[in-house]
Amino acid sequence: MDAVLERCYAPEKTYLSDEEKDDLKRMILESIPTKEGDGVEEYWNTHIIQHVLEENGACP
């Protein structure tokens, strides 16, 4: 029962360097997905951001 209730948290390791984080932040704040070639959406959502990170090899 303890194993079921135990919470597993993500490791403290980050997948993005500080420069990559800044680039992602700039892209989200200054652009839209259609300009970045990611679909037809006019706004960023977590699914699109995840797709961008996966394409760039930042997510396992």
Rank of each mutant, 00 (worst) to 15 (best):
A58L: 08
G57R: 01
T14A: 08
T34R: 15
S31D: 10
E54C: 04
N45F: 05
D2R: 12
D18V: 06
H47N: 12
A3Y: 10
E54I: 03
E19K: 11
H47A: 03
G37P: 03
Y9R: 13
T46Y: 06
L53H: 04
G57D: 07
H51M: 08
G57W: 06
E55M: 11
Y15D: 14
V40E: 14
H51R: 13
L16E: 00
A3Q: 04
E42V: 12
P11I: 02
Y43W: 04
K21M: 13
I28V: 11
R26L: 07
P60M: 08
H47S: 15
K13L: 12
S31I: 00
D2F: 10
E54W: 07
I32S: 02
T46H: 05
D22W: 06
K35V: 13
Y43K: 12
N45K: 02
L24W: 02
K25W: 02
C59Q: 09
E20A: 11
T46D: 09
E20L: 01
A3V: 12
W44D: 01
Y15N: 04
C8R: 15
V52P: 04
S31T: 10
T14W: 09
P11D: 10
K35M: 12
T46P: 05
L29M: 11
L24R: 13
Q50T: 15
E19A: 14
V40L: 14
P60K: 11
V4C: 11
R26K: 14
K25I: 01
H51F: 03
A3P: 09
Q50M: 06
Q50L: 03
